[in-house]
């Protein structure tokens, strides 16, 4: 085959390959929708994080605004310290609450941010003070059984 056509085909091949990577990155992956370079970090302490994992989404009003980057156990307070990256486009007041919620009945767990009314915004590295832990199903059932049992005892 002639050198020119060969070069042309290989050129098409390489361009198509890189286009495929670009499509994967922008359309399939989160590189296009999510700009973390201008993001900021927030910290929140929870009594119990349930099944929350790193990379879980952070949502506010249902919109994904960030991602959990790190989960550590704090040996002084005996609480779970969750670090999350928030997209720089979104600002939240200082008295925002963070709660661990579940999407659907069997879905994955995520952090829901409920904005407060403070005029000052949370800054990079700030800690969210008002948190609500995950609902642990076993504890809920235990409480239910306990209240039923005490109800029965009260009737006698």
């Amino acid at each position: 085959m002639e050198r020119k056509t060969l070069d042309l085909w290989v050129g098409i091949f390489v361009v198509a390959g890189f286009a495929a990577i670009l499509v994967l990155a922008l359309k399939v992956g989160n590189l296009g929708t999510f700009d973390m370079s201008h993001g900021y970090t927030l910290i929140a302490d929870f009594n119990n994080i349930g099944g929350l994992k790193a990379r879980a989404p952070v949502r506010s009003a249902g919109v994904v605004v960030g991602r959990v980057t790190d989960i550590q156990f704090d040996n002084k307070t005996f609480e779970a310290r969750v670090t999350m990256d928030i997209d720089g486009r979104y600002r939240f007041p200082r008295d925002t609450t963070a709660s661990i919620l579940t999407s659907g009945l069997l879905g994955e767990q995520y952090i829901g941010l409920g904005p407060g009314g403070d005029s000052a915004d949370l800054k990079n590295g700030d800690r969210i003070k008002l948190t609500q832990s995950a609902v642990v199903l076993e504890n809920l059932i235990g409480q239910f059984l306990f209240s039923k049992a005490s109800e029965g005892a009260g009737k006698k």
Binding site: I21, L24, A25, K27, V28, G29, N30, L31, G32, T33, F34, R55, P57, V64
Partner: peptide, 19 residues
């Protein structure tokens, strides 16, 4: 279809590891 895909697929974790 697209938004859940974009929320779940991470560039570094999924696409780069595949490459």
């Amino acid at each position: 279809f697209w938004s859940q895909m974009q929320a779940a697929v991470d560039f570094r974790q999924d696409i780069l590891n595949g490459i």
